[in-house]
Structures are given as structure tokens and as C-alpha cells.
Design a protein around this nucleic acid. Sequence first.
DNA 1: GAAGATTGACGGGTCAATCTTC
DNA 2: GAAGATTGACCCGTCAATCTTC
Lengths: 152, 152
Amino acid sequence: MTRPLILLWRNLYLVNTLVGDELNARLAAEAGCSLVEHDLLAWLSAAPGQRLRMLDLARRLRITPGGLTRVTDRLVERGWVEREIPAGNRREVYAILSDSGVAVLKAARSNYSRVLRETLGRHLDEQELEALAAMTGKLVEGLAATRPEPTG
Amino acid sequence: MTRPLILLWRNLYLVNTLVGDELNARLAAEAGCSLVEHDLLAWLSAAPGQRLRMLDLARRLRITPGGLTRVTDRLVERGWVEREIPAGNRREVYAILSDSGVAVLKAARSNYSRVLRETLGRHLDEQELEALAAMTGKLVEGLAATRPEPTG
DNA sequence: GAAGATTGACGGGTCAATCTTC
DNA sequence: GAAGATTGACCCGTCAATCTTC
């Protein structure tokens, strides 16, 4: 019987869309960016030299290279990210976090955290959160191993 | 500190996309439909008379009325769903599962269940699944209460 | 010729405006 | 005039083809 699995999947799906929608809404309203855009800035911020090669960035964001080109176009246009082609290998393109990108990320981050506290944080106690993190972590490991996707 | 919340959110997000992508891929390959399309057929199948008013269906699928019109257009074109305007109230439109829709759903369902067993089912034991379902269920309840969305 | 990024065509949805029926 | 569905304009991403550089 796969009934319990279906119910579990539905719960996971609902949590994801409810929280994701809220993140998108709050980020759009308070920081002027979408969720992927926040994630992109965050990945750059965490990377050495605040820069990442396009293909690596695409894998981290779990979108296609073509998709990343578009997202990056938007962020470049707003001045939050810059492109750079290294002299050594002119096939590659690096995305680099700009100063105003740092500022936007800072504002976005506080809203991002706040939404997580108001959603995931509000309805579960310390222990439950830990257990939930542990099990979903185990699940992610298993799934990543089965369906080998690059370093996330 | 919101660090644990961020990690939890990332896990939830990853599980959702890994499983969702797999569902979409398998359904497209084996049943010729997408995940929302499967869900639409499934909701109709579960409804009394295998029919639902457009607006109610949109809420269950968590998409906008405009979006549903498009999805429905595709399914009507394939002959899996029919539209009907009730004589009593000609403002409303009902989506109705057709015979070939039933057949497609049957094929889609087996693949759907199989993917869930191969992903969620494969990496957690009975107890873990139960605990995970319980906590995500609690979370969904809490979130639904906070952000009042219609009957799902 | 293969690696890497971008582009064009498109799929799939949102949003605001519109049309019909109550 | 409000309820309900649809349409037009558009946003965001995918996919396959293309262009450049190694």
C-alpha cells in the first residue's frame, strides 16, 4: 500500500509551496528580488572572492545553464552582479557579486530569515525541528546518491 | 540563530525538487502527462460524479483560475477532460473526467506510486516515514491556519 | 571536436482586464 | 454590480541549436 507515501508527498509539497510562496512574496515586497535571485546572491556571497563560474552556479541553484543566463541578465541589469571573462580561459564566464549586490543581499537576508522563523519556526518545537532536519537530511543524501546530481 | 531553519528549509526544498522532477520525468515518459496534469485528473477522479467546478479545482491544485484554464485546454484537446456548463447556472464551468481520462490516470497512477516508493520509500524505514508524515502534517496544519487558503 | 555560455522557440504559469451570466 | 471563467500581456525557466574558445 502506497497510501502513506502519497500523503507524505502531499505534505512535503504543501510545505514547500506555502513557505516558498511566502518567501517570494516577502522578498519581492521588501527587497525587490525573487527567491532564486536571493539564492544566487547568497551563493556568490559564500564563494571565495564572491565569484562563481556560471556552470557551477547553475548546478548550485538547480537550474539549467540557459536559465541561469537569464537570471544573471536581470541581476546584471540591476547592477547587483557583474560578469567577468578570465584572461586565462576565455570560454568561461564568472558571476561576481557587486557592492550594491552585497547591500541588497543584506536586506533580503533579514526578510528571508524572518519568514523562516514565522513559518517553519513557529509551528514546531526545538526537538521536532531537529528530528525533521535529520530525516529530511537523510532523505536528501539518499536521493542525491541515487540520482547523481553535482555538488549542491 | 536561524541557521538550523535555513538548513531545514534547504532540505525540504531539495526533497521537493528531486522527487518532483523525477515524478515529472517519469510521468512524461510513461504516461504522456505532467505532474499537475496527473493531479488534475486525480482530483476529478476522486470527486463525486468525476466532476469539479473550475474555481474549486484551481484551489485544490493551488494554481490561479487563469492557469487552470490553460491546463484544462490542453487536457480537453487530448480528450481526457470535458467541459460542461450546467443549465442551472450558466456562469459556471465544470471539468469532467472522460473515459480516456480514466485510462490515462490509471497508467499515470502506477508510475506515480512507483516513483514515490523508489524515492521517499527507499531511504526511510517505517517508523521514520510515520514520524516524518506526522511532523510535516502538523506543519501544514499550522501554516494553513496562519495563511488561510481554501480547502485543499 | 569538446567545453562552456548564450540564444530562439516554447511550456507553463501569473496578473489584470474583459466578457458573460446571475 | 458581483460571481465566475477566459484572454492578452508578460515572467521565468527549459530544451535544442548555435557561437566562441580551448
